[in-house]
Structures are given as structure tokens and as C-alpha cells.
């Protein structure tokens, strides 16, 4: 049975296959396709990447569905169903396995979605025949285990891939607040010395990078109306880079957008400060661990705002930060395996 970790975030879906050490991500975009659409694009050949049929129903997923980005993502039970979560998960299986496989799925979610964990399990558990670029594959999802995203982030920082405590764990005896800054939600969990999870502290707040990034993009476009007149969708990676550097590279022209970037970062930092205050205040923690794609954007600003607090990113490589939760999920899977062995 192959373990597979999947994090269907608001901005991107991320996956990790521990067995092969493969990981990847795709844009959060899903569009159901009619048989006519399918026949037009696929015909009798193999479908291109991103076009899949799950038990006969056709979808475009990820970049292939970029024209169908859903502005208002479905929430709760509406999201965790066979027409939405399942095609996203199956697309991730296709990318991760490239062949048929029996699967144990570790699915991470925001803490606010805990009440929908049952819906998530029902939506993806079963045997699925997937027509894709690699032919017709079968994924037999036998077990589904749901995980809280901020706990995954903490596990990524404190455990090894084998599910063992990392050597010289720097936060073993520290009171830690972990903040996971995602696209639409910011989640938190407090961990007391000795690795004791404060179960009542696990919470989500509706604040994330997407709003700040949209604010930045709108102001950038407004200030440079002529330049951006015919520009289509901006690549999110370029926009994020512009927020970090204060310069947007438009072809061979460098546009100074430091003011707009500072405004966007301040918006997000204010939200995170609220999260910290709601967790008891920065003074009550030895270390604040940062997780999620948003952490990269505001790390420097947060350090400047709280010079006395140790902020640590759970993943040292900013480019890999978005995968911290799926890597942490795999570490939790290994830890749970150990616990089961000795139970």
C-alpha cells in the first residue's frame, strides 16, 4: 500500500509521494467538461496533462483549467465531494504515481474544516478508474487519514522522514506557536515544552495571502494602466517575487512597486499580529514557527515588527515552503506507523 500525502490548498494543490520521494503542485482550478469538450480536445488519442476522466466523468484540473479558476472556492462539505475534491486528488495520484496503485491517503486540511473530515473521507475513499495522459489507471484508496495543516508544519520542523524526533531538536523544551499562512486562511497551534500539543489552541482565521496579493496586483495595474492594458493574467510567482523585491520585471523594464509591495505586506502582517495576539501574545512564546507560502512573503516584516521574538521558518528553502505541510504529513504518517507498531 503506497502512502500519499495531499494538501488541497486554496491557492494550489500540493502532493508528496514518500515512497518515490516525488512531489509536485498544481493550480487550484477544476472545470467539469462535457463529452463534446472531451471529444474535441482528446478525440481518440491520449488526453494532454490536466485532462482526466474519473469513473467516466471528465475534468480539466490545474493549469489546464486556468481559464476556469473559481473565484469563490466552495467551502466545507461543498468542497469535499466527489465532483470537486476527488478529481483534484485523482489528478495528484496521476502525477505522483503515473501507474495504478493501492493508496493510503493522508489528507491535510485547515483546522476549521475538521467537522468536514468525514465528507473528505467519503469523497475520496473507493476505487477510481482514471483516464489520463498515462493511459487508464486504477487507484484503490483503501484508507484515508486526515491531518491538521499546522500540526503537519510543526512535524516537518521537529521530525525526520522516519518519524523520529530530529537530533538536537531545537524546540524540544520550548513553548512554540506555529502559524501557517495560507491562501485564504491562517491557522495556528500552540505546542508546550516536551511536544505537548495544546489541543484547544488549534484554530483557523480567515486571513491569507490571496487578498494581499490581489490588492498588490490591483494597485500595480492601476499605477501602470497603459503598460498592463493588454497584459493578461499575471504569473503568481512573478507577482510574489515583486512583493518580496519591490520590483516587477515587465519584459526588459523594471517597475518600481516598493510602495505597493509594502502596503500589501503591511496588510498581511497586521492580520498575523492579530493571530499572535489571539494566541496569548508574542511574549508568551519562546519561538514562533512560520509555515505556508505566506510566511516567505512576510518573514522580514514580522522580524522587524517583533525584534525580540525568534521567528523560524519550518522549511529553510523559501521555494520549498509550500510543500512543508505535505512533507510534514509524511513524517506524521511515519510516526503514526511507529505508534501502531508498538500499540
Amino acid at each position: 500500500m503506497a502512502r500519499f500525502v495531499f494538501d488541497f490548498g486554496n491557492a494550489r494543490g500540493k502532493w508528496f509521494s514518500p515512497k518515490d520521494g516525488e512531489w509536485g503542485d498544481f493550480m487550484h482550478a477544476i472545470a467539469p467538461l462535457s463529452d463534446t469538450d472531451w471529444a474535441t480536445v482528446v478525440g481518440r488519442g491520449k488526453p494532454p496533462k490536466g485532462l482526466i476522466k474519473v469513473n467516466g466523468l471528465a475534468y480539466a484540473v490545474g493549469e489546464a483549467a486556468r481559464r476556469h479558476i473559481i473565484r469563490e472556492r466552495p467551502k466545507g462539505a461543498a468542497r469535499y465531494n466527489e465532483l470537486y475534491y476527488l478529481p483534484a486528488a485523482c489528478f495528484a495520484f496521476v502525477e505522483g504515481f503515473r501507474e495504478s496503485a493501492p493508496v493510503t491517503l493522508y489528507a491535510s486540511h485547515a483546522p476549521q474544516d475538521q467537522r468536514y473530515a468525514g465528507d473528505l473521507i467519503h469523497s475520496v475513499k473507493g476505487t477510481w478508474t482514471v483516464e489520463c495522459q498515462f493511459g487508464t489507471l486504477t487507484f484503490d484508496v483503501k484508507r484515508v487519514i486526515t491531518l491538521d495543516e499546522p500540526i503537519c508544519g510543526y512535524a516537518h520542523y521537529t521530525f525526520t522522514a522516519n518519524g523520529e524526533e530530529r537530533p538536537d531538536n531545537p524546540v524540544a523544551d520550548k513553548t512554540v506557536l506555529l502559524i501557517d499562512i495560507g491562501g485564504y486562511t491562517t491557522d495556528r497551534v500552540s505546542i508546550d515544552p516536551g511536544g505537548e500539543i495544546d489541543l484547544l489552541s488549534i484554530e483557523s482565521r480567515r486571513a491569507g495571502t490571496i487578498e494581499a496579493i490581489q490588492q498588490f496586483e490591483n494597485e500595480l495595474r492601476h499605477k501602470n494602466r497603459r503598460l498592463f492594458k493588454d497584459a493578461g493574467d499575471l504569473d503568481i510567482r512573478r507577482v510574489e517575487q515583486a512583493i518580496i523585491s519591490g520590483v516587477y520585471q515587465f519584459g526588459n523594464q523594471s517597475i518600481d512597486c516598493s510602495k505597493e509591495a509594502a502596503a500589501a505586506i503591511n496588510t498581511l502582517v497586521s492580520e498575523i499580529v492579530l493571530v499572535i495576539n489571539n494566541s496569548g501574545g508574542a511574549a508568551n512564546y519562546d519561538v514562533i514557527l512560520l509555515d505556508g507560502g505566506g510566511a516567505v512573503l512576510i518573514y522580514d516584516a514580522l522580524c522587524a515588527a517583533f525584534s525580540n521574538i525568534d521567528f523560524v521558518m519550518v522549511e529553510p528553502d523559501p521555494a520549498m515552503m509550500k510543500f512543508a505541510n505535505v512533507f510534514g504529513g509524511a513524517k506524521l504518517a511515519a510516526l503514526m506507523g511507529k505508534v501502531r507498531q508498538h500499540a
Partner: peptide
């Protein structure tokens, strides 16, 4: 083969799984 830290953490994790019900 588990440290006290790992045991504490896994105990909390399992409690959370029970809280979620169906986790």
C-alpha cells in the same frame, strides 16, 4: 525507539484525531 518528546507529541496527535471523529 521513541523519545519522550515523540511520545508526547503522538499522544496529542491521536487525541486530536479522536476529536475530529473520522480523522
Amino acid at each position: 525507539g521513541m523519545t519522550a518528546f515523540a511520545k508526547n507529541f503522538s499522544r496529542g496527535l491521536l487525541q486530536r484525531q479522536q476529536m475530529i471523529r473520522g480523522g
